[in-house]
């Protein structure tokens, strides 16, 4: 039975097509990895080759020796961690009552969060610049955290609402019968039960902040440049320093990819039922 299925023609066609599709989508990133471990001189060779002729970590050494990139990584990490903490702190309780204590105001609130996701960041970036300037927070970590939070909170709200939707209301009620106030029930029962969903949401908000470019471009200048800004600057500062750029891009993207791959199953769940992109 099983054998027969593997041998039929449409099965082979389907598997073949899927393999081609998957490979063609994986190739570009593979090429990035391959390029980053070529010697700097080979990166711009004509014609280009896919695989490195010799293995070299020259590009990585160069970007790590520069003072800007490591500092930018620290900035990115700080901003992303703080954004995640702040977004979860406000979004988790709100999503909880919005789904479990449904009433007109909570429905309106969720609708507002949904609408917020449609706001183009550039439309928000212009007045945010004004706001942060008047607060004296331009080019500071708290300023950028606030800007990123404006994008992360709606995302976290929608994801957490989807997770809370699947939680039985009785859990909270049982806790209240067992002697908890509503707050205690939330803290002692609801939060621990939801750790999986919270972790996925945290990862998504972290990635939102980690990947963010436009606000960082608008709202930072020297002190708090984040990694994507510095990587983008390899364009102008070093001319076309492709080798360094690929190495920096790998350093910047690989950790996130590894973590997400490790948590693949939960993430795909979060993605598909929130139907939102980070």
């Amino acid at each position: 039975m099983h054998k027969a299925r593997h041998l039929n023609v449409s099965g082979i066609l389907i598997n073949g097509a899927a393999l081609v599709l998957v490979l063609s989508y994986a190739l570009p990133y593979m090429y990035l990895l391959m390029t980053s471990i070529k010697p700097a001189a080979d990166v711009q060779q004509i014609p280009p080759s896919f695989f490195p002729a010799v293995l070299s970590f020259e590009n990585f050494r160069e970007v790590l020796r520069s003072s800007t990139l490591p500092k930018a990584f620290v900035n990115s990490l700080t901003v992303a961690v703080l954004t995640t903490a702040l977004s979860l702190a406000v979004a988790v309780p709100a999503a909880y009552v919005a789904t479990q204590y449904r009433r007109r105001i909570t429905t309106l609130f969720l609708l507002f969060a949904l609408v917020t996701r449609m706001v183009p960041s550039v439309s928000l970036g212009v007045p945010l610049f004004q706001l942060l300037k008047s607060l004296g927070l331009l080019d500071t970590v708290p300023g950028l955290v606030l800007a990123h939070t404006s994008a992360a909170v709606p995302l976290a709200l929608l994801l957490m609402s989807a997770f809370f939707e699947g939680m039985p209301r009785e859990l909270e009620e049982a806790a209240r019968m067992d002697g908890c106030t509503r707050f205690q029930a939330f803290r002692k029962i609801v939060l621990p039960v939801m750790t999986g969903g919270i972790a996925v949401t945290a990862l998504f908000t972290f990635i939102t902040s980690w990947n963010e470019f436009l606000y960082a471009l608008l709202l930072t200048s020297e002190a708090t440049k984040t990694a994507p800004i510095v990587i983008a600057e390899y364009n102008s500062v070093y001319g076309l320093a492709w080798g360094a750029m690929t190495a920096a891009a790998v350093l910047y993207s690989l950790p996130v990819i590894v973590v997400t791959l490790a948590l693949q199953k939960q993430i795909v769940g979060g993605l598909t039922f929130g139907a939102v992109k980070g």
Partner: peptide
């Protein structure tokens, strides 16, 4: 799993990569 890979790539990196391609 492999097909989902680009989803995790920061847009900046995707842009750079395609510029390079």
């Amino acid at each position: 799993t492999i097909f989902a890979l680009p989803l995790m790539v920061p847009p900046i990196v995707a842009g750079l990569l395609w510029r390079f391609l």
